[in-house]
Design a protein around this nucleic acid. Structure first.
Length: 285
DNA sequence: TTGTGTTTTATTGCCTCC
DNA sequence: GGAGGCAATAAAACACAA
């Protein structure tokens, strides 16, 4: 056997088929199978000739079948390339592989794993963002609810006063009493609505209404708009070209997330209903 | 030193696109 | 049908506390 290097056969399905230096096939299957094929000698199966890129001693010390980490230089270059664009056209893959002294397959695998890592990170960021928005919404909701309760009791006491006035009053027709009560009620409702608008519009919350979805996302979202230094074509930072990835969860409807938010809150409200609590919102509508 | 958790490299199987 | 992408997973390499 010659060098003892293992070569990838680019014509095989995933490029996974390996060949020893003498052309003997090495089937990638179970690791144990592969490991037994070259036990004795110290070789460097996955690196062809990048003398300038990795530490000879380090790699020579390792048995051939073990996984080996890429050198910092290799990783640096791969990272830079990934920043430029996260997908790998065949030509770029070949160039990179040549430059790094790696097999094209290794470069492809590295990009694949890197994309997976990016996606995971992005999902974490998205989760954090959604959670803080939700928490903020919830606290707004609670304060509005308290205001509402307060106003409600105010209205009740005013109503009681009014009733007393109507019952005790003299020479007033029943119909006009009703009209007067209605008028006062309307006034109170207007007052309550105005206050409600004020409190919901108060800053602090990242909340937004359906028609102005500036909320939720301050930029880096795996789901939609996002500039998290996601490498776009040509080196510019663009919304992540995650192809299938983005549409998977998003389904192309940006407002979905906002609806999700509000539905969360409304669920909370409904739960209050179910829990036998006083309905909130407009008590006379 | 060793046990354990995390990260990185690689494989497998399935899916989609051309 | 082949190429390439992704999710899930294995396993080596590494980090680190006890």
């Amino acid at each position: 056997m010659g060098s003892g290097h293992i070569f990838f056969d680019p014509s095989s399905c995933h490029g996974n088929m390996l060949f020893l230096g003498n052309g003997d096939p090495v089937f990638p299957g179970p690791r144990s199978t592969m490991l037994k094929m070259e036990e004795s000698s110290k070789r460097r199966p996955f690196f062809s000739s990048p003398e300038d890129l990795y530490d000879e001693e380090y790699y020579d010390e390792q048995s051939p079948e073990k996984k080996r980490r890429l050198t910092p230089e290799q990783v640096h270059l791969l990272e830079k390339s990934f920043e430029t664009e996260n997908k790998l056209e065949p030509e770029r893959k070949t160039q990179l592989a040549k430059k790094l002294g790696l097999q094209p397959r290794q470069v492809a695998v590295w990009f694949q794993n890197r994309r997976a890592r990016w996606k995971t990170k992005q999902l974490e960021r998205d989760y954090d963002q959604l959670k803080s928005s939700y928490d903020s919404l919830l606290s707004d909701f609670d304060s509005i609810r308290k205001d509402n309760d307060k106003l409600k009791s105010e209205v009740v006491s005013l109503m009681e006063k009014l009733q007393g006035k109507v019952v005790g009053g003299a020479g007033v027709s029943e119909k006009s009493d009703v009209l007067e009560v209605d008028a006062m009620t309307t006034t109170l409702q207007v007052k309550v609505k105005a206050e409600d608008r004020l409190s919901s519009g108060s800053g602090g919350s990242a909340v937004v209404d359906e028609h102005s979805p500036q909320l939720v996302d301050s930029g880096d979202s795996y789901f939609h708009t996002d500039h998290e230094e996601y490498p776009g074509p040509g080196g510019c930072n663009v919304p992540p070209p995650m192809d299938g990835l983005q549409s998977e969860e998003d389904d192309g409807s940006d407002d979905g997330s906002c609806h999700g938010y509000f539905s969360n809150v409304f669920v909370t409200e409904e739960q209050h209903h179910e829990e036998g609590e006083e309905p909130i919102g407009w008590f006379w509508s």
